[in-house]
Simulated assay, not measured.
Amino acid sequence: MSEINALDPQQYIIKNEPFYRPVSDEVELFESAYASRMPMMLKGPTGCGKSRFVEYMAHKLNKPLITVACNEDMTASDLVGRFLIDINGTKWQDGPLTVAARIGAICYLDEVVEARQDTTVVIHPLTDHRRVLPLDKKGELVEAHPDFQLVISYNPGYQSMMKDLKQSTKQRFGGFSFDYPAEQIEAEIIAKEADVEMSIAEKLVQIAQRSRNLKGHGLDEGISTRLLVYAGQLIGKGVSPNKACRMALITPLTDDLDILDTLMTTVETFFEE
């Protein structure tokens, strides 16, 4: 990607409105946070709609969105940029955080706790009154565009002493706590996203509820809304509900044979064949 193209905000605009079903007043609150460019932190379990919410808000605000999937191998250079060597010599290439700061995008760092702590500290100058990003290797101080906003997310269920945000990082953000939606709302989401009948969606949600009761009793996480959508899509393609649930809900969740049997029995309770 050339630098000229990378700095074109239009390529980061979400053209089609993502489906998002508000569960409370989070849309209005995020709009207020964006109006003051407050950095925001989204906390919640896997597959509960955090990323979809950010996409929806970026579209609603008509702002470019640059998403970074954080991982334990990610370095500060992966975020801010690095010098590259080509046939013409050495040139600087901005990282996604720098591009977002230059063009006034919403920069979304997904699962930020997966990144090393020495990497996440580079966001500090962008998340206080300074709103700047030092590019030490290049000798440049990037002043964030007036429209720039930083949003991070993580799953508190996976926190540990080795994988947690420092207080010096946490206290730079406003925050939302996400969870799986109420049963009826979640069923509406499944029916819409997977294009299945409400009766099927409601059964899938009931199966998920049973699995979530096993969190801490054999499961690290219950069945997510995302996986329910996958199961619904398979059912919509003509796959039998039992096979769809085994493929999309149960097999990805655990390797424990007893838990597998328990979950499969639950599926058979709701989808008799």
Rank of each mutant, 00 (worst) to 15 (best):
A6P: 02
W92I: 15
S36Q: 13
N155R: 03
T67L: 07
I235M: 10
S32W: 02
I250Y: 11
R102E: 13
V267W: 10
K50E: 00
K91Q: 09
E188M: 14
V68C: 13
L65K: 05
F173V: 11
K215Q: 00
I223W: 03
Y34T: 15
V132I: 08
T120K: 08
Q206V: 09
T269G: 01
Y12S: 07
N16C: 00
H124K: 12
G216F: 06
D255Y: 04
P64Q: 00
C70T: 14
L253Y: 13
R82M: 04
N88A: 10
L263A: 05
T98R: 04
T75N: 04
E183I: 03
K43W: 05
D261V: 11
I152F: 01
A33P: 14
L214N: 09
V80Y: 01
T262H: 11
H124P: 09
V113A: 03
D195E: 13
D261H: 11
Y12K: 09
N71V: 14
H59W: 04
L260P: 06
P22R: 01
Q167Y: 07
Q149N: 14
L227Q: 02
M264R: 08
H124T: 09
S24H: 07
S36P: 10
Y180A: 03
L42Q: 07
R212L: 12
K91G: 05
V113D: 07
I189Y: 12
E221N: 07
Q10T: 06
F30W: 10
G222Y: 09
T251R: 15
K138T: 03
